[in-house]
């Protein structure tokens, strides 16, 4: 599969995750969000950026339980809960937000 971003083609795997993490840009993120049916807002970016930082630091995309806890620690309890995160990313915060963040599918997600 592939994604068209400002005239360039970006390769993805069959589930829509970027084949090469280095191809990520904010434009690519927005394009992936559209294909996921998400209208990307500041609140989405907050989670996406958090995930990118987490990956940079630990070289993994966190499991949803870990993500929820870590978001709570960083952005407060009103955001560190699954209701809030599932409202932003209805098909699973770890899965969908990771895809938009250009990260691999979280380890343990099937």
């Amino acid at each position: 599969m592939a994604l068209q971003v400002s005239g360039k083609t970006i390769e993805t795997d069959e589930e829509g995750y970027l084949a090469d993490r280095n191809q990520w840009s904010m434009e690519a993120a927005a394009a992936i969000a559209v294909s996921e049916g998400i209208n990307i807002t500041e609140s989405h970016w907050e989670v996406v950026n958090f995930l990118r930082e987490y990956y940079e630091e630990y070289q993994i995309a966190p499991a949803v339980r870990v993500l929820t806890k870590a978001i709570g620690k960083k952005l407060g309890p009103d955001k560190g809960n699954s209701k809030y995160l599932y409202e932003l990313f209805p098909y699973g915060p770890a899965k969908q937000a990771c895809k938009i963040a250009g990260l691999p599918k979280p380890t343990g997600c099937v």
Binding site: E57, Q59, I60, V66, K69
Partner: peptide
């Protein structure tokens, strides 16, 4: 990939 960084995430788990 330098997966040694990932051992530092174990505490989160």
């Amino acid at each position: 990939k330098n997966f040694s960084s990932t051992y530092r995430a174990l505490d989160d788990y």
